[in-house]
């Protein structure tokens, strides 16, 4: 196995580990909500249909 393949396999393991850790903590950077930090939200309503 080449050096490149080895490092890539390591990288894959790191990504899998990150995914597993996120799974264990029920975390995602794209979650709609989580621990409240204050701050307001703003929304625009209405259809976007043109």
């Amino acid at each position: 196995m080449g050096r490149g393949t080895f490092f890539y396999a390591l990288w894959c393991l790191a990504v899998i580990a990150g995914f597993l850790a996120a799974g264990i903590f029920g975390y995602s950077p794209f979650a709609e909500g989580g621990r409240a930090h204050g701050g307001a939200r703003a929304g625009i309503y209405g259809p976007t249909h043109k």
Binding site: V15, F19, A22, Y27, S28, F30, A31
Partner: peptide
């Protein structure tokens, strides 16, 4: 598990 996490991974 978050599908978004899968996409990021």
């Amino acid at each position: 598990l978050y599908g978004a996490n899968l996409i990021v991974a």
